[in-house]
Amino acid sequence: MEFGVVLVVLGGFLIGGAWSIWKADHDTKGRTGPQVFFAAVLFVAAALATASGILRLV
């Protein structure tokens, strides 16, 4: 298995984690600041992993 495929799969898992954190809001308070920050960090990491995986496959 090529390393690019591993990076694309890792990016998919990170996007899933970001989506899970984003959807886990509190009923009355909504999303908290740290929750939004952590979801954004995971999304950026997922985008970087996916982009680098695609570039390694090309």
Results as ranks from 00 to 15, higher is better:
T28D: 11
K23F: 14
S52F: 15
D27Q: 14
F38I: 13
T50D: 05
G30V: 07
A46N: 02
F43R: 10
L7F: 12
W22V: 01
V6N: 10
I54G: 05
A45Y: 05
S52C: 09
F38P: 00
G4Q: 02
G30S: 08
F3A: 04
A49Y: 01
F37H: 05
A51D: 06
D27L: 14
T50P: 09
I54D: 00
A46H: 03
R56W: 13
L55G: 06
V44F: 09
W22F: 11
G4R: 05
V41Q: 02
T32A: 10
L7S: 02
T28W: 15
A24S: 12
V58R: 04
S52M: 14
K29N: 12
T50Y: 11
L55D: 13
G33W: 06
V44H: 02
V44Q: 02
K23A: 07
L57R: 02
G17P: 01
P34I: 08
I54K: 03
V5M: 06
A18H: 02
V41M: 08
I15C: 08
F3N: 06
A24C: 09
G11V: 04
F43A: 14
K23G: 10
F3C: 01
K23M: 10
G33R: 00
G11M: 03
S20P: 05
G30E: 10
G53A: 06
K29G: 12
K29C: 13
H26C: 08
M1C: 11
V5L: 09
G4C: 07
S52I: 15
F13V: 14
L57T: 09
L10A: 12
G4W: 03
G16M: 14
V36L: 04
D25K: 12
L48I: 03
F38L: 15
A51I: 14
L48H: 10
G53D: 04
L14W: 01
G17D: 09
A45L: 13
A51M: 13
G16E: 08
G12N: 12
G33D: 04
G33C: 07
V58N: 05
S52E: 13
G4A: 06
A46W: 01
D27Y: 11
F3E: 11
S20V: 02
G53S: 07
L55R: 12
D25L: 01
A40D: 03
L14F: 09
A24Y: 06
I15R: 07
I15Q: 09
A39E: 06
K23Q: 14
G11W: 07
V58Q: 06
T28G: 10
L55H: 10
I21F: 03
D25E: 13
W19P: 00
V41W: 08
A24G: 08
F37R: 04
A47D: 01
Q35P: 03
G4H: 05
D27T: 00
T50G: 15
D25T: 15
I21G: 02
Q35K: 04
H26A: 05
Q35R: 11
L7H: 07
S52H: 12
A46E: 03
V9H: 13
P34F: 00
L57A: 09
V41S: 00
W22P: 00
G4S: 06
